[in-house]
Design a protein around this nucleic acid. Structure first.
Length: 816
RNA sequence: GCCGGGAUGGCGGAACUGGUAGACGCGCCGGAUUCAAAAUCCGGUUUCCGAGAGGAAGUGGGGGUUCGAUUCCCCCUCCCGGCACCA
């Protein structure tokens, strides 16, 4: 092979080989150790972007590495095919969402193939197909029967002009993206899944998941937000119903100076009926979107309702306010306010002239002025009557006991986590399998009538869901009583599809069961890779669904993903690539210009996987240049014919040094890929080894043998990253069996041994010299050598040696 | 606002368990090759002082622990991700 590196030819040949040999199609072989390697499946937007190339390459490297370790590797691919972009495309271009989606899938599948990923395409899953979503409909009906789903009111963004529910991202500065109308928050009935029933299990299991990043586990813990507190009730003057609130700080109860209820709260509605100012304020409160970030950052507003609650301990009047930051659908729709000891309450009280009362004093006896600064730490109770002097725990228990004894409250565990609202007022999603009957209420669609198929040939206008205008779809008979009834026209949140697809890859063709024996073989996923942006929602919903499937008897597995790798974004000029910013780079062009291997190599080399990756055109050229050097080095060596067997005893010092480097590099790269997911340093180490081969000026038989060993190691170890070029070079080195069936190289421990090692000598922590010592030198010999060094003496001369620290194999620090 | 993460040469990054700061690559500078250029190859490249040997400073900012801190602790700034209907 005297030819130069031609990626398009090399890559085609490698891909043809894999296709002909069906290299990546796997069956369930109980005698082999399985390894399930998965990436979060993509939304078929139509074109591959750099972010895709990054995740898929990371996962492919892991899959190919594990295969070389002798594992039986499954790496499937599929499509998260329901979602808003298809509806938007339909509005803009008049194409039905289904056709747009299927066309995109075909385009993207072709692009994936060109990148040489080791996928088993026979298991492809597409979530918008009835064969797929029927099983989540089925599971939903099972959950219905177990009481794991229910209907309640919840908040949506309502666009009063387009008469549509908007997604949070379609609300821009409080206005509808298309209509520009002020968005209103509105409550409508929706279906919920009881994820809170699994809150404790989802929380506790995090402690037993060593394969997940700490940061993701922390985020999930905080999201679940388990707290222990007290639920207690305040009587309201002139009302029969008491006002119930939950607090984690019952110790501050004596500091309550006001209470706040949501705009939708019955007490607010009642007052508004005869108070136009309150009515106007309530209307004002509704003119905001439903996002929590908006709620937390907007100006806190409120108005006194002119009615009072009765403090349950003192009997004092506590004024009731209506406030824009309290939401009816979370908790009880009412909060007690302790301005002295809560940041938000303090600011609100300052602004509205509500009294601030200190009931907690710092434990160390420091005097504080509660009018100047809020005090939120736990401390000692003051101004609290009989509870004065108690600490947090004492007061918590005393007050909780009091309420439990009087029957006016109880200790309660609360979660920040809310049940999962799965209803979407959209067309392009899986229909929720429910039928509404005047007599029987909501009835789940019977199993033999599933799937409820989404009609695909529709005209899509963007105003409301087309399903609502399709009597053929919604006019049905009640499955319970046979009376005319109406089918649910809402569809599932697309997170439902992505909460179980990973299990379905094991048995995508099963028409009679959701999961089968094959799923028992492959699950859980051994390595899951995807964006950090999914750290909470997708991953938590999947953990929930896995447990629902387990409790349905479909699997024994509780945790779906054993190891998790969250990869960073691809940036250009410091910003996320996006069409709006005009800073996108098209992977297709680069692949055409340099080949898939160059793009893959750059992705792996430019940054560690968890970090954001800054795009660099020059860096891509550098990767291409390296591959050319790699190609030439191997080709040149191979041109010299076969090398003789390596005789380790016959090597000179330079050859020994290269051989040591080869085996040290094998150790490093094995650790970098196998344990650390540190692909950038693995590539760097391979580059170093290749540089060392090129530098060794030794064309003797032994020299060629050492070089061959090094080059074969580089070819094998780079093959997970750049599989095509390595496939060709492996053959070039004279091997008959293809690289894809090769094992990872072994380390020869004897090659690593060293006679002399270099130590650093510091004086007072500053580097002053380097000394060479025998590898087996003892501590005192090392100390003597260090002190004797000329430059060391310049800094120790005339000074008292106070201490000498010897770190074996690393350094000597002399303290004077 | 709350939760999580990040900041190291001109640039991307390395330093894994508290032990040589800047591996590897890009860029730049110099040289070889060439009629010339591209490509390729060789050498140099944190900053400052110094001819050199060598010295001083240096990992977003401020403080602390330690013989020794990019690494651990406290405070701050800026940037990124998530906040339940983008996926």
């Amino acid at each position: 092979m005297s030819t130069s590196y031609k990626p398009e030819i090399v890559e085609q040949a490698a891909q043809d080989h894999w296709a002909d040999a069906r290299s990546f199609e796997v069956s369930e072989d109980p005698d082999k150790e399985k390894f399930y390697c998965l990436t979060m499946f993509p939304y078929p937007s139509g074109k591959l972007h750099m972010g895709h190339v990054r995740v898929f390459t990371i996962s492919d490297v892991i899959a190919r590495y594990q295969r070389m370790q002798g594992k039986h590797v499954l790496q499937p691919m599929g499509w998260d095919a329901f979602g808003m972009p298809a509806e938007n495309a339909a509005i803009q271009r008049g194409v039905p969402p289904a056709r747009w989606t299927y066309d995109n899938i075909d385009d993207m599948r072709g692009q994936f193939r060109r990148l040489g990923y080791a996928y088993d395409w026979t298991r492809e899953v597409t979530t918008c197909r009835p064969e797929y979503y029927r099983w989540e409909q089925w599971l939903f009906t099972r959950m219905f029967k177990k009481g794991l789903v229910y209907r309640k009111n919840s908040v949506v963004n309502w666009d009063p002009v387009d008469q549509t529910v908007l997604a949070n991202e379609q609300v821009i500065d409080g206005r509808g993206w298309r209509s520009d109308a002020l968005v209103q928050r509105r409550e409508i009935p929706q279906w919920f899944m009881k994820i809170t029933a699994y809150a404790d299990e989802l929380l506790d299991e995090l402690d037993r998941m060593p394969g997940w990043p700490e940061s993701v586990k922390t985020m999930q813990r905080n999201w679940i937000g388990r707290s222990e507190g007290v639920e207690l009730s305040f009587d309201v003057a002139g009302e029969d119903e008491p006002l119930s609130v939950y607090t984690t700080r019952p110790d501050t109860l004596m500091g309550v100076t006001y209470m706040a209820v949501a705009a939708e709260h019955p007490l607010a509605t009642k007052t508004a009926a005869h108070n136009p100012e309150i009515a106007a304020f309530i209307e004002e409160c509704k003119k905001t979107d439903a996002a929590e970030a908006t709620l937390e950052t907007m100006e806190k507003k409120g108005m006194p309702l002119g009615i009072s609650a009765i403090h349950p301990l003192t009997g004092d009047d506590v004024p009731l306010w209506v406030a824009n930051f309290v939401l009816m659908s979370y908790g009880t729709g009412a909060v007690m306010a302790v301005p002295g000891h809560d940041e938000r309450d303090w600011e609100f009280a300052k602004k509205h002239g509500v009294p601030i009362k200190q009931v907690i004093a710092p434990a160390d006896g420091t005097e504080i002025d509660i009018d100047e600064a809020v005090f939120v730490d736990k401390g000692v109770l003051v101004n609290s009557g009989e509870y004065d002097g108690l600490d947090y725990e004492g007061a918590f228990n005393a007050i909780a006991d009091h309420f439990e004894k009087t029957g006016r409250g109880r200790r309660a565990v609360n979660y920040r986590l809310r049940d999962w609202g799965v209803s979407r007022q959209r067309y392009w999603g899986a229909p929720i399998p429910i039928i509404y009957c005047d007599d029987c209420d909501a009835v789940p669609v019977p199993e033999d009538q599933l799937p409820v198929v989404l009609p695909e040939n529709v005209e899509f206008t963007g105003v409301g869901s087309p399903l609502r205008n399709m009597p053929d779809f919604y006019e049905v008979q009640c499955p319970a009583c046979g009376k005319d009834a109406r089918r649910e026209t809402d569809t599932f949140d697309t997170f439902v599809e992505s909460s179980w697809y990973f299990a379905r890859y094991a048995c995508p063709d099963n028409a009679t069961e959701m999961l089968d024996e094959r799923a028992k073989y492959w699950t859980p996923v051994d390595q899951y890779t995807g964006g950090v942006e999914h750290a909470i929602l997708h991953l938590l919903y999947s953990r929930f669904f896995q447990r629902v499937m387990r409790d349905e008897g479909l699997t024994d597995v509780s945790e779906p993903f054993t190891n998790l790798l969250t990869q960073g974004m691809v940036l250009k000029d410091g910003a996320k690539m996006s069409k709006a910013k005009g800073n996108t780079v098209d992977p297709q062009e680069l692949i055409e210009k340099y080949g898939a291997d160059t793009v893959r190599l750059f992705m792996m080399f430019a940054a560690p996987p968890e970090q954001a990756l800054e795009w660099s055109d020059e860096g891509v050229q550098g990767s291409f240049r390296f591959l050319k050097r790699f190609w030439n080095a191997v080709a040149e060596h191979a041109a010299g014919g076969p090398a003789p067997p390596l005789d380790a005893a016959a090597l000179d010092d330079a050859q020994k040094a290269l051989r040591r480097k080869t085996h040290r590099t094998i150790a490093k790269i094995s650790d970098d890929i196998g344990r650390r997911n540190s692909f950038n340093t693995a590539v760097a180490a391979a580059m170093e080894l290749l540089n060392a081969v090129n530098k060794l000026d030794s064309d003797s038989d032994t020299g060629r043998a050492v070089k061959r060993e090094a080059l074969e190691a580089v070819v094998l170890m780079l093959s997970p990253m750049v599989p095509h070029i390595c496939h060709a070079l492996w053959a070039e080195l004279g091997h008959e069996t293809p690289l894809i069936d090769q094992a990872w190289p072994d380390i020869d421990e004897s090659a690593l041994e060293l006679e002399m090692i270099e130590l650093v000598v510091q004086v007072n922590g500053k580097l002053r010299a380097r000394i060479s010592v025998p590898a087996d030198a003892d501590k005192s010999a090392i100390e003597q050598l260090a002190i004797a060094d000329e430059n060391v003496q310049r800094f120790t001369d005339g000074k008292e040696l106070r201490k000498i620290i010897v770190v074996p194999g690393r350094l000597v620090n002399i303290v004077v």
